[in-house]
């Protein structure tokens, strides 16, 4: 068995007085796609956003427990959020390219982290990122055009290119296909599968078929608790917990 890249131990998250996550214990294995599923408000997005500390932006949000990335506690006082987020990229539900050119969108992360000193190096990295995101063929001749001139699926791939440009260890995806049509979704799913060999991917999705298609491991959250976590195949064919069964078969649980 591989060593987990992310492991959560007794994670509790509170929004003010209400508790959003209860004692989450979860190990994410490297170079695998881990899907987080569950009904709305079950805490799966909260857990996802705990991993790159995006929850810090919410003033009333409080975190308890231990969450480690490569063995290092990411909620430790010595951890700089900026450095953490360079290691943990994120792709959002709605494609959100910056209102800048396609090139600048991808180059932004490299610029702020001062990862490329020479201009040619920057261009190479942008090209590499766009190629990895399977977008290069479509945009190589129009890198100066604004990022939002692309189609929805292309925009989302641009956001993925932007996230992987800084070569993070982990890429978090928060329902990346929910705003896309089936074809664009299929392209992204294919991309996620090919990105798996270089990155660890954690994806929140509402589509169980999608989770079944692209993930190797699936975690089912319900009412802030991790109900079941295991091989995707097992979760979707023979789940052990009745709540999981009810949820994935579409029965009210």
């Amino acid at each position: 068995m591989l060593d987990p890249i992310i492991s959560a131990r007794g994670v509790n998250v509170f929004y003010g007085d209400s508790q959003a996550l209860f004692d989450i214990e979860l190990d994410v294995l490297p170079n695998k796609v881990t899907a987080l599923i569950g009904p709305s408000g079950c805490g799966k997005s909260t857990f996802l956003r705990s991993i790159n500390r995006m929850n810090d932006l919410i003033p009333v949000c409080r975190f308890e427990g231990e969450l480690t990335l490569s063995g290092q506690d990411i909620y430790d006082k010595s951890v700089d959020v900026v450095a953490l987020r360079a290691q943990v990229g994120m792709v959002f539900q709605k494609p959100n390219p910056f209102p800048k050119s396609i090139f600048e969108n991808v180059a932004y992360g490299l610029r702020i982290h001062k990862m490329c000193t020479a201009k040619s190096e920057l261009q190479d990295r942008v090209e590499w990122s766009l190629k990895s995101a399977g977008l290069w063929e479509e945009v190589s001749h129009r890198l100066d055009e604004p990022g939002n001139s692309l189609s929805g699926g292309q925009q989302q791939r641009l956001c993925i290119a932007r996230a992987i440009a800084v070569q993070p260890k982990v890429v978090l995806m928060d329902e990346p296909c929910s705003a896309l049509d089936p074809i664009a979704t299929a392209v992204i799913e294919d991309l996620i599968d090919s990105l798996r060999k270089d990155y660890t991917i954690i994806i929140v999705t509402h589509s169980m078929q999608q989770a079944a298609r692209i993930s190797q491991r699936t975690a089912f959250f319900h009412l802030g608790k991790l109900v079941e976590f295991g091989e995707t195949k097992t979760i979707f064919t023979t789940p052990k917990d009745e709540r999981t069964q009810n949820y994935i078969t579409g029965r009210i649980g």
Binding site: M208, A212, F236, T237, Q245, I248
Partner: peptide, 10 residues
């Protein structure tokens, strides 16, 4: 039509 899962699929 329904893409049944788990029990439903069986």
């Amino acid at each position: 039509r329904r893409q049944p899962m788990a029990f439903d699929l069986r």
